[in-house]
């Protein structure tokens, strides 16, 4: 099975996501799925804002969209984003820890479908979403990268993840991009 990168971000996430996307190689070979907490009425402006900085094409997910390598997928406002082996599934189930989309929901479904091929990344945020999801990915043999808390706008979320599970790497944003390139760029597969 191919690899899948899942990223969870909350308060301060947009700036951090920009830095990471900017640093990705054009040869980046894995699909990336992102949950960024946002207001439920927010429009698609986020896709455009991030696209300006990303060498990879960014899409807001529609239900049952195929998961294709080299694309960056954003969870739409007010929907949970889940993954199955080759496509996305959306749900409007109750918010999990007040969040919809919820990072835990994405990470837990990724752990199930992609197991050790999952790379989970927890970024800045002022809540604990993602901590349980990160530990689910670890339990399946996947890889966890957590943003170095001192470099985060809000250290709560990365700290919660670090308390919940053992991260493989704890890095500032620019190095997260480099690490992802090393794990997923085409050259590393050959």
């Amino acid at each position: 099975m191919q690899r899948l990168v899942v990223i969870g971000a909350s308060l301060g996430g947009l700036t951090t996501l920009r830095t990471i996307l900017q640093g990705l190689a054009t040869t980046f070979s894995a699909p990336i799925a992102i949950v960024q907490h946002r207001h439920k009425e927010s429009k698609t402006g986020m896709t455009k804002a991030l696209q300006l900085h990303s060498p990879l094409p960014i899409r807001e997910v529609e239900d049952k969209d195929a998961i294709l390598p080299g694309y960056v997928y954003l969870a739409p406002a007010d929907y949970h984003l889940l993954v199955e082996p080759d496509h996305f599934v959306l749900s409007v189930d109750e918010p999990v820890s007040y969040a919809r989309p919820s990072i835990d929901v994405l990470f837990e479904s990724a752990a199930e479908s992609y197991a050790e091929q999952t790379i989970g990344v927890i970024l800045t945020g002022a809540n604990q979403d993602g901590a349980l999801g990160a530990s689910a990915i670890k339990a399946q043999g996947g890889t966890i990268i957590v943003q170095e808390p001192t470099t985060a706008t809000s250290a709560v979320m990365p700290t919660a993840a670090l308390n919940q599970t053992t991260a493989d790497w704890v890095l500032p944003p620019t190095q997260i991009a480099r690490r992802l390139n090393a794990l997923c760029s085409v050259s590393s597969l050959t």
């Binding site: 889940l82 199955e84 599934v89 749900s91 189930d93 929901v105 479904s109």
Partner: peptide
Amino acid sequence: YAMSSLKRR
């Protein structure tokens, strides 16, 4: 039903 959301429920 979509398996991933059904499973959560």
